[in-house]
């Protein structure tokens, strides 16, 4: 009970929200890192997955890359990148590590989504004389959209988690509140940071849940 009230008073103290180590700044860093890396990972992974899925090639790679991503500890990659020459360039080790762990779920889900498009529909579209490009953008992509969005959601949640871990390797973001709390041996600060991170992750998950729920309407409207 005591920890709860201490955590609450830590969270509600105005001093902890402002300044370079303040919550607002850390939240901004976290949001920026997550959004930037999500955009970059989508730009890298989705075209590859769409083309591979369209051609029906590279399936084993696209599916197994997720399993590989799971076996490699995020923390190890963060530290390894930090110790390489890239480590000198500020946030770059963090950004690269984040992208490395966001690409697999994007790739796998988008590829599976493309391959699960009903083959009859694809054949019908071909029979109507659609070119490969038309087939990809007008038929396969809209039908694969739900799974692609699932991949984006998993990647976003993964990015929030990885960005938190980046604090252990000296990066910014909300994780810094937790690591600073450990260094100060301040349990209220550790718990407060954890609450903020958990809430942030759940909000991101929730936002994507909503986007996904309303996606089919605008997908139909946009491509019809």
């Amino acid at each position: 009970m005591n920890t709860l009230s201490d955590t609450w008073s830590w969270l509600t103290s105005a001093a902890h929200w402002s300044g370079e180590n303040g919550i607002w700044n850390r939240l901004g860093q976290h949001l920026w890192l997550t959004a930037l890396c999500l955009l970059l990972s989508c730009l890298i992974a989705l075209p590859v997955a769409l083309v591979l899925g369209h051609l029906g090639k590279g399936g084993t790679l696209a599916v197994n890359i997720s399993n590989v991503g799971r076996a490699v500890p995020t923390f190890a990659v963060l530290v390894l990148l930090l110790l390489t020459p890239i480590g000198k360039y500020g946030e770059w080790p963090t950004i690269i590590a984040l992208i490395l762990f966001a690409v697999p779920p994007l790739l796998t889900n988008a590829y599976v989504g493309m391959r699960e498009v009903d083959r009859d529909v694809v054949r019908a579209a071909r029979g109507m004389g659609m070119t490969g490009r038309q087939l990809l953008f007008r038929v396969e992509l809209p039908l694969a959209l739900p799974l692609i969005l699932t991949g984006v959601r998993i990647a976003a949640v993964q990015l929030v988690a990885t960005a938190t871990l980046a604090a252990l390797a000296g990066g910014g973001g909300l994780g810094r509140i937790i690591t600073a709390g450990f260094n100060l041996a301040s349990t209220p600060q550790v718990v407060a940071g954890a609450v903020l991170v958990a809430a942030f992750a759940l909000v991101v998950e929730g936002v994507f849940e909503l986007v996904q729920r309303f996606a089919p309407q605008w997908a139909k409207g946009g491509f019809g």
Partner: peptide
Amino acid sequence: YTIPSLAMFSL
């Protein structure tokens, strides 16, 4: 499962 590991341990 959505809660990041560092936050989970901290909580």
